[in-house]
Amino acid sequence: MSGARVDARGTAPRARTGAPRVGAAPSRLTRTIILSLVGLVFAIPIVAMIQFTFRDGLSGSYTLSHWTGLTDPAVNTKYAPLVTALGNSGVLVVVTVLLVLVLLLPTMVLVELSFPRLRRVLEFVCIVPITVPAIVLVVGLVPVYSVVVKVTGSSIWSLGFAYGVTVLPYAYRAIQANLGTVDVITLSEAARSLGAGWATVLFRVILPNLRRGMLAAAFISVAVVLGEFTIASLLNRVNLQTALVLISKSDPYVAVIFSLLALGFAFVLLLLIGRLSTVGVGRRKN
């Protein structure tokens, strides 16, 4: 149980009797004022976007046609580029998540088990992309990709290699948060002494304990890849975001509808990540 909770409960009765409160927590009134004010200001652009999708041109009246048009096959062909872009982003999501689970995750487990001294090095490498932002990295990716394209062809999936780097800090943090709470060394030694082989140790002992971290890392990677614009746009690739910018010039309504949907999807993903961590805490307490 957190200190803040104990504190809030302990001070509440005193606050009611008018004595000065002790803790750091604000009064209910202060909290409500701050949160509703900021919440209101932050809701305005979202509400404006939603209102925008119902506008009937500049006529000032409202229409459902921008939403109903999405399922209309006749109008649908207009959005074909957007559908292609969604497919591309889907491929990139798969490649990126695979990179996280097949490259990053085993490396983190291996470092934890066999090279504890490399832990700081790995952490440093994984947070470098924060200091080298996408707009800088892309300058160096242009020459790299002119070589990569010769090897892999110009299909979209190779862009996933670049995205694997952009999600590195997020994925690392998500997995590390889980890895830190699991004593993998004791677990693997126990399994080994009971006669388990290395594959059994990894797949039946360690990875099941890291399920939460793996899921969180995968979800956050999905959200980052779906929102990525910088690298795709400057390498002249088509993904969801670059297609949205393009289509916003001919049909801004569809662009706004799809950004709202993407935003909602990312919000749900992150809500699930939050759920994952609290469920884990609850289980540990029991």
Binding site: P45, I46, A48, M49, Q51, F52, Y170, A223, V224, L226, G227, E228, F229, Q241, L244, V245, S248, P252, A255, V256, S259, L260, A262, L263, A266
Partner: peptide
Amino acid sequence: QFGGVMLAFAFIA
């Protein structure tokens, strides 16, 4: 983390 392009649309609206 994921605003990017969508923020531009939001503020144009």
